[in-house]
Nucleic acid binder design. Structure first.
Lengths: 354, 354
DNA sequence: CTGTTAGCGCATTCAT
DNA sequence: ATGAATGCGCTAACAG
């Protein structure tokens, strides 16, 4: 067992080699017998320091294991070399994007700081503005915001949004083609022979959700099918709620033979509901999701879904931000293709209702 | 198109409402007609402020969208309410852990700051000490370090290590049971009837790699098989190198019927080599990996592997860190079970060689 | 070449 | 109840 003891209230000794772990620039200066600014110069490789002095300072830095505090430095300097990535929390969606950003940023000279405010409930509204205010202007040179809920004009640093909830208008943004993806999903079901296709909608306040419904409707319209509002319950992008509305949807007499869910979480809910009702997937019911999260592949049966190029989204967002930081012109809006991935949850409708 | 223009050199106007995005406490104070300390008191909910004044300040804060700078605040205060997670880069392994930490941290009152130095080459050695020095004592209250390469004593803040390369001795650490996991993998192959089982080793300088080899050898020994060094090439946890050594291994006359690779990346390399040599998996060759990264499931055939509870690792690390921060006693070392996941890459050996 | 002075944005005494 | 002064760790502009 070990007990916490981190010298929070340790009296700093009269002389160097502080007992606590934290080593500051003054510790180094004192030990090396020079002034603080001299150490600063050495740290930043500026000239105007005698070679002998620099060497001695370097030795002390090495010995004490000193490293400049990112905080103190960034308070004083304008550029920090750190890019912020703002998310509400770390979950499969945001971490996949993070992975893409990281791959793109390697050897770019920038460091990455991913920040999760972990706010819940009321406080969630406007989280991105708050987080950005806390970091921008000091800690970070620019930011990538994952699924921001509001538009932000006049930010202190360059910002690129990924999959903004409000749609990609007004600021540098990148997202996947939700309309085309949803259309591909519905086209796939139509091609299999389905005619009665339901759509479990996402959060109605989000742009992505509405775009997916648009794609669904466009596909139906192209096939000469008029959309039936009774087949469009709202699952709010949530598994539990989607399972609930799916149960109702699938219990009726004239139940659909296929469901296109607004995201994978919803699709998993539909799968759950089908299982409870004794419906086999894909024999009795076909299900398509959206996003292609890891669980989609692990589901039983593996979920047919629309894959968003999450890593690409991240990588390209980083590229755009780099462009903004370097004062280059960058496209205001980039849209990446979403592609259908056919797995085991879709099949032709059962003969009885065909 | 839009061009970067973020008022870096904007002259601050004589009066409030600065043109740049950055709003400081003095802007608020000036606008509200009070002093800076008063605003500070209001922000931190301290008393000693007239209700009327507080209300006015609150209004201005709201109007200006002011938020305290994390940097400036943390420089002055000891506690920041932010936990740092230090990684070299964001990839599937570290982001999975991140997801687990995030789930555990929600509603804990702490915010999460994941920091990737993105160092490569020489500078990589000792990255965790450098990153920690840059953040600890100021920005973060404690840190979780993912796969640190060195031991760190006497840190400025509490630290918990996940899967330390040096083994879990000396500081609060958590990892998966590599020995037992490797043993389970090898036992599985033995149970299928394999006798000639190779092991593609990982990075020999890492504790996890050596532990996995130990488990492999222990399993063989228990079955009365003496380990053959010729069957233990080093793949260095890398796909390309592993494919190379596997090609050599599988080209020989007395080739093994099964391979236990030190991690999934290596296993994918073995799969590659087998395909090139015309060996069918699992009919001609069984392959087992370690880690259970998402690609393991997506491989052809789906990879039998040993799953590390990455999210649990993260969640429990957060729990331990919380304990340290609260001055509670926490176990110095936690070891979580690694479990075999049997998929499609393993089967009994071909009759010819059985 | 070096040290002194100043100030980044904020929180904390201590006066008033 | 409020404001002036001080310092966190660091860097920039100057003075010696």
């Amino acid at each position: 067992m070990c007990r916490a003891r981190y010298g929070e209230h340790v009296e700093s000794a009269v002389h160097p080699l502080p007992s606590s772990g934290r080593v500051t620039i003054s510790d180094v200066a004192r030990t090396a017998g020079v002034s603080v600014p001299t150490v600063s110069k050495v740290m930043n490789g500026r000239d105007g320091v005698a070679p002998a002095t620099a060497a001695r300072v370097h030795e002390v830095i090495e010995a004490l294991g000193y490293e400049t505090s990112l905080v103190a430095r960034s308070l004083r300097r304008s550029r920090t070399g750190v890019i912020g990535i703002l998310v509400t929390e770390f979950e499969p969606f945001s971490t996949e994007i993070l992975t893409g950003i990281s791959a793109a940023a390697i050897e770019s000279g920038y460091e990455l700081l991913a920040y999760a405010g972990l706010v819940v409930g009321e406080a969630r509204q406007g989280w991105e503005r708050r987080s950005l205010s806390r970091l921008a202007g000091t800690l970070i040179d620019g930011a990538i915001i994952v699924t921001p809920t509001t538009l932000m004009a006049d930010t202190a640093v360059p910002v690129v949004s990924i999959d903004p909830h409000t749609g990609p208008e007004g600021h540098a943004a990148i997202d996947a083609d939700n309309v085309a993806g949803a259309r591909a999903a519905t086209d796939h079901l139509l091609a299999l022979g389905h005619r009665r296709i339901a759509h479990v909608r996402g959060r109605v306040d989000l742009a992505s959700s509405e775009e997916r419904r648009q794609g669904y409707r466009a596909s139906l319209a192209a096939a000469g099918i008029t959309a039936d509002p009774a087949l469009e319950p709202v699952g709010g992008y949530q598994t539990a709620l989607s399972a609930e509305v799916a149960r109702a949807l699938l219990s009726g007499p004239d139940r659909p033979t296929a469901v296109f869910a607004a995201n994978d979480g919803s699709a998993l809910g539909v799968l759950q509901a089908a299982r409870q009702l004794g419906l086999r997937v894909p024999d009795d019911l076909s299900v398509v999701g959206f996003d292609d999260v890891p669980q989609a592949l692990a589901a039983t049966p593996p979920l047919t879904t629309v894959s968003q190029p999450l890593q690409d989204l991240g990588a390209q967002a980083f590229g755009m931000l780099l462009g903004l930081l370097e004062g280059r012109e960058v496209p205001n809006h980039v849209r990446l293709p979403a592609t259908l991935v056919v797995r085991g949850s879709t099949a032709p409708p059962p003969p009885a209702v065909r």
